[in-house]
Amino acid sequence: MELLAFGKTGWGDELFYATLMTIAVSITAMLVGFFFALIFTPLKLSKYKTLNLVGNFYTTVIRGVPELLVIYLFFFGGSGAIMYVASIFGYYEYIEINAFITGSMAIGIISGAYSTEVFRGAIQSIDKGQFEAAKVLGINKFGQFYKIILPQMLRLAIPNLSNVWQITLKDTSLISVTGLVEIMRQSYIAAGSTRDPLFFYSFAAVLYLLLTYVSMKLINKLEARYSMGY
């Protein structure tokens, strides 16, 4: 237990901050994922074949390639890509991107592919009459999507989005390879300096279980709220 003490003698506070970091990365990645999903879901549902192709390319590639490989691409390729863009604008200094940004972008893109599939499924299960009614009422495309379809879709999407959240939360453990100090990285450091890997990795597992358990409870509440009246 003294290994978990707060302050200089134990790893309690370090692991606490690491847990906060995991939560922060997960939430950022989830939001980045929503952003990508909002771009790619309309593409996947579009009438135009080329737009479909772009949407399908994104979800197929990201869901078919290991998360770790995507993270390595961002970790090793990220600053190179930014520097290339900067060089176009005449900036030639070395640019280093923060591990938090690289990590949440990489996980966000992965999470976005799953969210896109969830949104697509939810939109497709909305009654066609809703689209037609909105059209008849003369609501423009933008209004149709944001005011009519999106609110209905969210209710249908929440159970599946909670799966995406779980996947995203667990995927953040992979960012530890880039050196960002979240639960996994902190446990690795603690295990290395105390030579007690069994304890620290088991404790990390408990922390992840706690996070998934608490978030499930919260999502269930949200789900109950959104299905009011159904």
Partner: peptide, 18 residues
Amino acid sequence: GTPLLVQIFIIYFGLGQI
């Protein structure tokens, strides 16, 4: 409920400690 990475680390690094 736990990441696969944790599971591998417990088995590979953890068990050898006993």
